[in-house]
């Protein structure tokens, strides 16, 4: 049974596309046939982060309009055999997405035996974001530990509860997961940042993971490789934990405590 997962946040720049890329890669690395769809029509980014921008021929809008088949448009990932990317169109706007068209594309992906279909939502709460969440079975709510991001996530949760197909047809509600990104335990300690407990207290949905703030994310994006590929970094391990928890495994929370540098480290200023 295929699961459609929307990665959304309301606010921009919190790490939706980074998380979509690493999350879908993580699922594929564990052997699940996964598709990741970029709904940010007009501002395509996912193909850059996945490092396949030069292989884009057809895109989501072409498929929705019937100008190309899914098989023509899906791009096979360069690292994983069972990961496919459906890029957004750069030259169109989000109004080009119709609900019927999206439903047809998703149904076709389900028929192609994809186990997980990840919908990378654009920022905002307008048409593009609505199209990304309408057919979701589950939602990854990407939130930074700061008030405006939390407020926007709260807003998008309300929209999921009202506008998703599951809500409209009175089905089982969309399963929500909280993913906190760009978390800095040191800044939480200094009261410069909301703690993950604060965020959870406001949003009141189950926490699926915490991704620490890290320079390796920027490095990964620039290289066109999802951060989860950078073995040994805290970000890669944190995303692996998220994927494991999503698949039902128990993993303890990591990267939430600030370890003060030891005396010798402070004296000698070593990293």
């Amino acid at each position: 049974m295929a699961r459609i997962i929307v990665v959304t946040s309301g606010k921009g720049g919190v790490g939706k596309t980074t998380s979509s890329a690493s999350f879908s890669t993580g699922l594929a690395l564990r052997g699940h046939k996964t598709a990741v769809l970029d709904f940010d029509v007009g501002l395509r980014n996912l193909d850059l982060i996945m490092g396949c921008e030069r292989r884009v021929v057809y895109d989501l809008v072409n498929v929705v309009n019937g100008e190309a088949t899914l098989n023509q448009a899906l791009i096979k990932d360069k690292h994983c055999d069972n990961l496919f990317i459906l890029p957004a169109s750069q030259t169109r706007d989000k109004d080009a997405l119709s609900e019927d068209g999206i439903e047809r594309v998703l149904n076709e992906l389900v028929k192609m035996d994809f186990e997980f279909i990840i919908c990378d939502s654009p920022a905002g709460i307008e048409h593009g974001a609505l199209m990304a969440l309408t057919f979701a079975d589950e939602a990854l709510i990407v939130t930074n530990p700061e008030v405006s991001s939390v407020r926007d996530s709260d807003r998008i949760l309300g929209i999921i509860q009202a506008k998703s197909r599951r809500a409209q047809t009175g089905g089982e509600p969309v399963k929500e997961h909280l993913l906190i990104t760009r978390y800095s335990p040191k800044r939480v300690e200094n009261d410069e940042m909301l703690s993950y407990q604060d965020v959870q207290e406001i949003l009141r949905i189950p926490l699926i993971g915490i991704i620490p703030e890290s320079e390796s994310v920027l490095h990964a994006s620039n290289q066109g490789n999802p951060a989860i590929h950078f073995k040994g970094t805290d970000v890669a391990e944190a995303y692996e934990d998220v994927v494991a928890r999503f698949l039902g495994e128990e993993r303890p929370l990591r990267f939430t405590n600030y370890e003060k540098p030891g005396l010798l480290q402070r004296l000698f200023g070593t990293k």
Binding site: R151, G158, A162, R204
Partner: peptide
Amino acid sequence: DTPVRAGQ
């Protein structure tokens, strides 16, 4: 019985 969220 459900949380009332921003914008609702």
